[in-house]
Amino acid sequence: MPLRFLPKQKLALATAIYWFLLLYIIAALFFWYIKLQQQNQQMANYKLMELVADDPSYLRKVDQINLEAGRKTMQFRGEGLTFLVFILIGAVFVFRAVRRQFRVAQQQQNFMMAITHELKTPIAVAKLNLETLKKHRLDEQKQQKLIQMTLEETNRLNTLTNNILISSQLEGGGYKLVREEIDLSLTGEKLMEEYRQRFPGRHFEWQIEPDIDISGDPLLLQIMISNLVDNALKYSPKESPVRFRLYRSQGAIIIEVKDNGAGIPDDEKQKVFQRFYRIGNELVRKTKGTGLGLYLCKKIVTDHRGTIRVTDNQPAGSIFTIQFPLQK
């Protein structure tokens, strides 16, 4: 049986068992309510049969017995409705919690599959390139090409490691956010120049307004920008440009990263910022990644009191827009 069908089958089985037990509990509740009501009516009838018709207080006693039976009925109904409400509230809570755990388990499985591939690939490429350089006498151009490929894979491995470590520290509260004045314009310029050098075969365009300062964590803000640019590189055709823009507008600092890839469906636009979430099936997905990059971007932006959203680029692709409040 293919591995990809197991989580869905388990979830379907758990859901079926859950609904069966819930319906059984509710049916049992109604059953006991009917039995108690029948017992209450039998007790009232028994007490009425014991009354003497010639008793001067006969009618008063009949009213008391009926009144007591009515109070019992209201008591049973009140208790039954209370139990029913608590059962339904608990059922909703448990159902959502179980489904959430299944989703988390599936996401973690996808992450482990992705991280295994992401770790093995750069290590294997770097090892192969170094062994080639060691065993063969290559001309200068081929040597530089292999060295460049090795550096790219090393940088990719470094980015992956940073994402995992920072994500774990931010999630567990182990990372202490540093607040200092940063020249975001200078940071953006340096990063884009580095990307141009690291990926000489790709085309980068950027427009950066000078002297844009922000109070924040330098490392996290660099990771945020790098992850957005990396994401654009992964999902863009090699011949299309990756565009980066940093500017001020209407009392805010705006960062835009545009690509000309396949774009993101509307129903996935919010999900892509979830931890470990990636569009498509991990077993058939070809694009590199672990599902941590955009999650980290969202986390970093939120911690810096900003917002991030994704919209469609024209004619194709995506635009990731970050907005920070402009500091006075």
Rank of each mutant, 00 (worst) to 15 (best):
V125T: 15
E189W: 07
L191Q: 13
R137S: 12
R137G: 02
S167G: 15
N163A: 06
L130Q: 07
E180D: 04
K190F: 11
K135Q: 14
D183G: 03
Q101E: 12
T154I: 15
M112Y: 12
Q109V: 01
R103K: 14
Q107D: 09
F111M: 04
M149H: 00
L160C: 05
I123E: 00
L119C: 08
L146W: 05
I166S: 03
A124I: 00
E194Y: 09
N158D: 10
Q101F: 12
K135V: 10
L186H: 11
R196N: 06
S168N: 13
T161K: 06
A126M: 15
S168E: 14
L165V: 15
Q143D: 00
M192F: 07
R103D: 13
N163K: 00
Q108W: 11
Y195W: 08
L157A: 15
K127V: 12
N155I: 09
L138C: 00
M192G: 07
K190C: 01
Q169I: 00
I115V: 15
S167C: 07
Q109S: 10
E189M: 10
M149V: 09
Q109N: 09
E189I: 12
L151Y: 12
T187R: 06
R99S: 08
E118L: 00
I164D: 02
E180C: 01
Q109H: 10
I182F: 03
L177Y: 07
I164T: 08
L184W: 12
T121S: 06
Q143G: 03
S185F: 06
L191P: 01
R179V: 05
V94E: 00
R137D: 11
R99Y: 06
A114M: 08
K127A: 14
E180I: 00
Q108A: 06
I164K: 05
R196H: 09
R196W: 01
E181T: 11
K127R: 11
N163L: 03
Q148F: 03
T150R: 02
R156N: 14
K135N: 10
L165P: 03
Y175F: 13
R179D: 07
D139T: 02
R99Q: 13
G188D: 04
I147T: 02
Q109E: 13
S168Y: 13
N162F: 01
G173C: 02
F111Q: 01
L191E: 14
L130C: 01
L170R: 04
K142W: 10
K176I: 05
N163Q: 14
L128T: 13
S185H: 07
I115S: 01
L151W: 08
L157E: 04
I166A: 08
Q108H: 09
N129V: 05
L184M: 14
F111C: 06
I123Y: 10
I115C: 01
M192P: 08
H136G: 01
E181L: 11
A124W: 04
I164Q: 10
F111P: 01
Q148L: 15
L146Y: 05
K176A: 09
E180G: 01
Q143V: 13
P122I: 07
R156H: 11
L157R: 05
S168K: 12
M192N: 09
R103Q: 14
L146R: 05
L165D: 11
I147P: 03
Q144F: 04
M113F: 08
